[in-house]
Write a protein that binds this DNA or RNA. Structure first.
Lengths: 201, 201
DNA sequence: TGCACTTCCCTAAAGCCTATAGGCAAACTC
DNA sequence: GAGTTTGCCTATAGGCTTTAGGGAAGTGCA
């Protein structure tokens, strides 16, 4: 697979070149293919055609692997969000951010599930989760809401995005009309209207 | 625990009285205590002070156990919802339904997680999930929305409820002001206002 | 009451996963 | 090229899942 040399029946067995980064990357791919809860140290070892014990010099344990995959997913999602938000404001920014979440979840369901992993406070504080919060606030700042409305709106927006994407990923809207895409746009329109109507004048 | 007789060092070892119902009930309690993903056939067997293999005459496999816990949770949640909705309409009904979801998730986090388990189509179709959909539509019917708006609104409502409850359960709103309760009410108010404004006149 | 039959929980065993300890050889350092 | 470090290995132990088969407690009927 990743290192064809390792399966040779010859005498020389080159090293597999394992690094934490490669392991986490492989774990993320595995998550997208078979589901985040199916990601296991054993499965990743199998991908590299290497014995399981070999991974334990790179990873503390199974939870460590999953946490790192979660952090990777949060980074990727934050990067995409930052890129999509550049130069946008208002409804445009809202739609861009929402689109990033939805697309990421559909392209990388396993990673998206990983990003929902509950992190311990210190890890969370050092993660890209902070950037997510900042960007969400940035989008809402465009609507000029006073506090505490802005905070409430952050929570509403977070709930809608996460909730919709989760339900769609779980197949909740499949095989029923109207198409999920139409509802998505309808929801964004209503959300935009709501936020706009909250601006003090 | 459930059957003190079984640990007696005496000769007679009475039967444990295992039934699918008791196993599922114990599994649900276990889920609330240690998390749904920690629910295992072994752990349930331990609760009844019984060997693991004994459970396999009552349960097909581990997945069967989890599915049954999910179905139990869906039933309980649907029952509570039906009770809470009786005689209510409009904003009242909306708040009642939302309150049931939120309270259930906080009282029974493991069961709530179980309720989010992805069921195969036939199982889902025969589950209380159907009642959930009906009740959500019933709440929205009170707002007199035309189609396809009503469907969009069902999806929005589902997303907000599930999203908010998930995020709160994951600790997303803990240790930050304003209090999650305040945001919750704010969100319900906005949602009610939004739905009301959509009614054709 | 006695006997057959069913039900219930058991022991045994195999397979996969996590995790730790210790070993040998490849790769780097000087 | 010798010494050190690094990287992947074997071996091992414990936990969870699942199947196969056995023995004893309960049930029904003569």
């Amino acid at each position: 697979m990743h290192n064809p040399f390792r399966k040779d029946e010859g005498i020389a067995v080159p090293r597999a070149g394992l690094t934490v980064e490669r392991l986490v990357q492989a774990g993320a791919e595995l998550a997208d293919e078979v589901g985040f809860d199916q990601v296991t140290v054993s499965a990743v070892a199998r991908r590299f055609d290497v014995k399981v014990a070999s991974l334990y010099s790179h990873l503390k344990n199974s939870h460590d692997l999953k946490t790192r995959i979660a952090l990777l997913a949060l980074e990727e999602l934050a990067d995409r969000s930052a890129h999509a938000l550049a130069g946008r404001a208002g409804r445009d920014a809202l739609a861009a951010l929402a689109g990033v979440y939805r697309d990421y979840a559909r392209e990388h369901p396993g990673r998206y599930a990983a990003a929902r992993l509950r992190l311990d406070p210190e890890t969370a504080a050092a993660s890209a989760g902070v950037r997510h919060a900042q960007m969400m606030r940035a989008v809402l700042r465009g609507y000029g809401l006073p506090e505490p409305d802005q905070t409430h709106a952050v929570r509403l927006l977070g709930s809608v995005l996460h909730g919709y994407v989760s339900l769609e990923l779980a197949g909740g809207f499949a095989h029923s009309s109207p198409d999920a895409q139409v509802s998505w746009e309808w929801i964004l329109d209503r959300l935009d209207g709501l936020l706009t109507s909250l601006r003090p004048h």
